[in-house]
């Protein structure tokens, strides 16, 4: 009984100390752990901050580094990919992702995405979905204003100009809105996932009964096509599809 109380007190105090530390303090504590060589300790703190809902490119980048150094290459790739969604033009993330990616077992002949899709995605990731949404609304409002001017000021001098400006603002608004939607689907509902099990078999049907189609190793990026209970249908970078256990992957 006494022991139980003791354990309870220890647990409570543990929770309290964890709660009393601000996320910034924990973040810098993880940085110190990393510097002193305790990579798995640092990775645990970064992971916890991520799970609590904190986001920043630095946090995700550091988490990737900590996982890489502690030997968890799959998680490192996962976090680098996540960081890349917040900072698409960051050169450090690309470099580290390339190093971590060079240790993946599986190699694929990948077909690169169409250039305008890549550009569109890149532009959509340059800022957050909410900023795109606000800008889109501002453009919409501007287009309306110019439209009203065009329609009411029958004899004003810049009547024609206001028409073209209104049209341009409307097009911009539509583009920005689609950027906002694209950003949201990339950052918050990304269909790509990273294999976390060291080895996993892809089958032709969900469950253990399907014909074995392929074997994947940790760190490989796949695209989730369908979700059915404990199994996800994934598409490999070379286009093949198969069903894989859902607990063997983590979405980006």
């Amino acid at each position: 009984m006494q022991r139980l109380i003791l354990i309870f007190i220890v647990l409570i105090s543990g929770v309290l100390t964890a709660a009393s530390q601000s996320p910034e303090e924990r973040y810098s504590q993880a940085g110190n752990l990393y510097s002193s060589g305790d990579y798995s300790g640092a990775a645990a703190i970064y992971r916890q901050l991520y799970d609590e809902g904190y986001r920043s490119e630095d946090l995700l980048y550091n988490a990737g580094n900590a996982f890489y150094k502690s030997g968890d290459n799959a998680s490192a790739i996962l976090f680098y990919e996540r960081a890349k969604l917040l900072a698409p033009a960051d050169e450090d993330i690309d470099y580290n992702l390339q190093i971590a990616g060079s240790k993946i077992t599986d190699r694929f002949e990948t077909v690169p995405e169409l250039f305008f899709v890549r550009w569109f995605d890149f532009i959509s990731l340059l800022t957050t979905t909410n900023i795109w949404a606000v800008l889109a609304f501002a453009m919409f409002a501007l287009a309306l204003l110019l439209g009203v001017i065009f329609l009411t000021r029958a004899r004003a001098k810049g009547r024609l100009l206001s028409f073209w400006l209104a049209l341009a603002a409307m097009v911009l608004s539509v583009v920005m809105l689609s950027l906002a939607l694209r950003n949201n689907s990339l950052v918050n509902h990304n269909k790509n996932a990273v294999i976390t099990c060291s080895i996993v078999t892809g089958r032709s049907a969900p469950g253990e009964s399907g014909t074995e189609l392929f074997v994947l190793h940790s760190g490989t990026r796949v695209r989730v096509e369908q979700e059915l209970g404990l199994y996800f249908e994934v598409q490999l970078p070379d286009g093949n599809k198969g069903w894989i256990r859902a607990d063997c992957m983590e979405k980006i």
């Binding site: 996320p23 910034e24 973040y27 904190y54 986001r55 920043s56 630095d58 980048y61 949404a133």
Partner: peptide, 16 residues
Amino acid sequence: IRNGDGRLAMLPDTLV
């Protein structure tokens, strides 16, 4: 790794 305060922010609600 990057040092500094990390510019941590909670995941905001998405407007769209």
